[in-house]
Design a protein around this nucleic acid. Sequence first.
DNA 1: CTGTTAGCGCATTCAT
DNA 2: ATGAATGCGCTAACAG
Lengths: 351, 351
Amino acid sequence: MKPPPTDRTNGRAAPAARRRRPTIVDVAAAAGVSKSLVSLALRGDDGVNAATRARILAVADELGYRSNVLARGLVQGRTMILGVLLTDLANPYHTEVVAGVEDTADANGFTVLLAHGRRDRRRLEQQLDALLQLNVDGVVVISSWLEPQALTDAARRAPVVVVGRPPRQPAGVDTVANDDAAGAAAAVDHLARLGHERIAHLAGTARPASRARSDGYRATMRRLGLTHHTAVVEIGDASRHRAQAAAELLSGGTPTAVFAVNDMAALAVLDQAHAMGIAVPERLSVTGYDNTVLAETVRPRLTSVDQPRTVMGRLAVDMLLERFSGRTADRREVLAPDLVIRDSTASAPRR
Amino acid sequence: MKPPPTDRTNGRAAPAARRRRPTIVDVAAAAGVSKSLVSLALRGDDGVNAATRARILAVADELGYRSNVLARGLVQGRTMILGVLLTDLANPYHTEVVAGVEDTADANGFTVLLAHGRRDRRRLEQQLDALLQLNVDGVVVISSWLEPQALTDAARRAPVVVVGRPPRQPAGVDTVANDDAAGAAAAVDHLARLGHERIAHLAGTARPASRARSDGYRATMRRLGLTHHTAVVEIGDASRHRAQAAAELLSGGTPTAVFAVNDMAALAVLDQAHAMGIAVPERLSVTGYDNTVLAETVRPRLTSVDQPRTVMGRLAVDMLLERFSGRTADRREVLAPDLVIRDSTASAPRR
DNA sequence: CTGTTAGCGCATTCAT
DNA sequence: ATGAATGCGCTAACAG
């Protein structure tokens, strides 16, 4: 805890001559009217003399006056700010949801501010709290790391929508998720239609979304009568683990196709296949999940399950707006994902 | 502009039973003391009876009391919040700088909030304004898009540090940048040492950083006496442009090496080389710039110039702290980049 | 139609 | 150890 900022705007000339932004009183003084009148004029109230209003607007413009959100929030009880809390800035999945959030927020006159949890639950809670303290009107949580209790608590202070798949459904908060089971089914069905039978699965960590995808994989394999599904390997976050898991997967059972839990995992499979001299897609088909930029970047371009991220972000804000208008019942939305077929999948090799 | 939130905490039972967070008065009431005493106790003032303090702390803890940043900011003139303004959330370069900012902010008890410009100058200005309205104590701008005037104006309200290379040095704000010319020289020198002579360059848009790199490239080629530097192609942001530019570059002059302005451009070269059946690095060496995750993702792994992003972020906050302690002179810091050699560069092919 | 006045919210700091 | 005053900028209610 270092020495905090000392500068005060009042008092004698501060070092850097910090300038107060013009307030409504400055405008009032410059225009020679009361600040109430300025307020009315600025908000287009009818009861203001046209000439006076013109003068006020001119002065305000000249001074570069802009009303202060927080001050207005103080009296109106709303700030027109929406907070977005996300686990991991570096995760492109998250940032695309943010784009959707921004779209709808913009269209409705809201400003969006972001808080970053750095993949740390404690920090996520702190940041959520920080947003709430700013009196944001609502929060979109792009994370499945928070305890249901923390979310429910937060929702008592402002409407909260979770984008993703929290471990348990928290009371009082809305959720938007994609149908992981359906996505897994789409990928596996696609591979099966291409004639693959030995379809292996590279599974993720214990996160709910990963589990749902693995469950979907197993269910689909069962439905297809494919008992020979080679292996399910738990992988960690470290890329070394992924590589190791991928190596293990390709060595045992000699699969002709792999359904990876996400694009990063799929990339590990691609790399491992390359190292082992297995041609993709000729001898091995690979599918990812999330359709991140990665999928369009690696060679061969990755077939991947696409979550409608932008739509999810938009929907999240829509749900916030509904809460603002009085909805009290929780709403959970599950969106259908979409398989994007690229170059990493092809017909199964003949024996 | 949709109907804004209507809920007020006061009045009769609001639909969702929105709960006020406990304030210092609640704690005072529950502990049977005045709020002044609570304030003193919480901040460890000596003049508080030990037993009383213990009771107050216990009550505060039980109620889950946490002081409100904004209210404290009101009276103290500082909020202990730092704002980060960035051009593009999806740009991993930016997010790594953020990590550095967060490191140092954390260590000094500051909270970090992010505002996103969506690659739009107007929006960047709005977001900068939004941060300032929150009374953040300082702002780190990770962008070179803002007009110097906008930055200077902002700096009158709170200290501002720009990470990156603004077109002109704005008065009153500090800057942290990497030495693009030196980075370019490191890359070209590396290629020259490997025996390359026909070293082409894939240039970027008109952004200052890109220009500095191109200048560095040309200067180094001249210094090395390599007049035969094939071509400089202007590329746009669209990936199609990049591909086209890369194709053009590899067709004319048959270079044996390419210094690309950034990793994305290098990736385009890699892809194009692959399409044309040119083996990398056997027949063509490629270097990138920025050392993004991309560099460690593509095959072959990309040799790239690394900017010390985390350090830059940390330094930015250090500079903010200096301003808080009274520094008034502008400070501009230029950090040395570092060439990271991977698999995409090798000795020049024999004729 | 215009101007004045009193809070909105909360924590700190000064007098007592 | 306490009440009252204070910081901020705005809007709403009311008086002129």
